[in-house]
């Protein structure tokens, strides 16, 4: 699905240099359901950003879905995200002025592959069908995240990246959400990478990788 080859990534934080990746190589196959774990500040989010094309590497190549991100134009990276990537954030990041239906449909419409029926069934699956006319400010955290999941999956992306998707939710809701995420991703056929520091969350996924000091190691 994607391939990080010998990448180096470092950034300065208050005078200190933090190496997020040192000659890191990481591959993920299609259909994988992976957890990416690590200490706070290890750089999990950065790795995710790199995969999403939201950030660049200092050295090495990043290939996603056969596209070498460093050798294509910004426009193509953007298109790649649009058509093949779904993003879920800890802070939900819904558009406050659009209702649930429009929020969920947003990326699919941008990608030009919106289908109302499929949308309805996805929302049903996520149990938010009854909320389509509500606005984000009227929803609970869990509901908002489910809308974000809908948005990330509606266009049937090849890869979904979720960064601490349950970070702002309570335990019970977390479980529900992560279950739905894995379930829906599978149904849509997307690979899934979840950045988390919670073992409970990681337990829902097939693989688990640990990032520390710039290197990734698989965990049991």
């Amino acid at each position: 699905m994607f391939q990080l080859q010998n990448i180096d990534k470092a950034f300065r934080d208050r005078g200190e240099v933090i190496h997020v990746a040192r000659n890191l190589t990481w591959e993920l196959a299609s259909g994988a359901k992976t957890a990416l774990m690590g200490e706070s500040g290890a750089g999990k989010t950065t790795i995710m950003n790199i995969i999403a094309g939201l950030d660049s590497v200092d050295k090495g190549t990043v290939t996603v879905n056969g596209i070498k991100l460093s050798s294509v134009s910004n426009r193509e990276v953007s298109d790649y995200r649009r058509n093949h990537l779904g993003l879920i954030f800890q802070k939900f990041h819904l558009v406050p002025t659009l209702d649930v239906w429009d929020n969920a449909a947003l990326q699919a419409r941008l990608a030009g592959c919106f289908d109302a029926e499929a949308a309805e069934s996805l929302l049903n699956r996520l149990e938010i069908q009854h909320l389509i006319n509500h606005y984000p400010s009227q929803l609970s955290g869990g509901q908002q995240q489910r809308v974000a999941i809908a948005r990330a999956l509606m266009h049937r992306p090849k890869l979904v990246l979720a960064d601490e998707p349950t970070g702002n939710l309570d335990e019970a809701t977390s479980d529900k959400v992560i279950e739905l995420l894995v379930d829906t991703a599978t149904s849509v056929g997307s690979s899934l990478v979840v950045v988390t520091h919670s073992h409970k969350v990681a337990s829902h996924l097939n693989e688990c990788w640990h990032l520390a000091s710039g290197t990734l190691t698989p965990s049991a």
């Binding site: 939201l54 953007s78 995200r81 058509n83 993003l87 802070k91 990041h93 941008l110």
Partner: peptide
Amino acid sequence: PEYALWRAIGMRW
């Protein structure tokens, strides 16, 4: 942040 999201989900300039 909201504008960044728009770009993140693939909106063209």
